[in-house]
Amino acid sequence: MTTIRYARADDVPALAEIGMRAWEQAVTGVADLDALRDSAHMAFLQFLASNWLTVIVAEQAGRIAGWAAREKLDEEITDLWVDPTLQRQGVGTALLTALEDEIRRSGFEVANLQTHARNASALAFFRKHGYAVNWLSVTYSPKLDRDVESVGLQRQLIEEQVFGYGPGGF
Rank of each mutant, 00 (worst) to 15 (best):
L136Q: 01
F108L: 01
T78F: 00
A94W: 06
D79P: 00
L95V: 06
A122P: 01
V82N: 08
V133E: 13
S121F: 02
G92R: 11
T78H: 12
T93V: 12
I77M: 14
S141M: 04
G130P: 09
A98Y: 03
A120L: 07
E102H: 11
H116A: 04
I103V: 07
D101W: 01
T78Q: 10
I103W: 03
V91L: 06
R105G: 09
A124M: 04
F125P: 12
L86P: 03
R88Q: 14
D79E: 13
S106M: 08
A98R: 11
F108C: 03
V82E: 07
E75M: 12
I103L: 01
Q89L: 14
L123R: 14
R88F: 05
V82R: 03
I103Y: 01
E100Q: 15
A117Q: 00
V110T: 15
F126H: 15
T93Y: 03
N119A: 13
D79T: 12
W135L: 05
N119H: 13
Q114A: 02
T78D: 11
W81C: 11
A94F: 09
Y140Q: 05
N119S: 10
H129D: 07
T85E: 15
A122Q: 02
V91W: 06
G107E: 07
A120W: 00
V91F: 05
D83I: 09
F125Q: 12
V138R: 14
G107P: 05
Q87V: 11
T115K: 04
L96N: 11
T139S: 14
R118L: 02
N119L: 06
E109G: 15
R118G: 01
A132S: 15
A122W: 00
R127F: 00
T78L: 00
N134H: 14
E75V: 06
T78W: 02
L86G: 03
N119V: 05
K128L: 13
L95K: 10
Y140S: 02
E76G: 02
T97K: 14
L80S: 08
L136F: 02
N119W: 01
R105H: 11
T93N: 05
K128H: 15
A117M: 00
D83T: 13
V91N: 08
E76F: 10
R104G: 05
K128I: 02
Q114W: 15
L95G: 09
R127G: 13
G90I: 06
A98M: 06
A94P: 10
D79K: 13
A94I: 08
A122R: 01
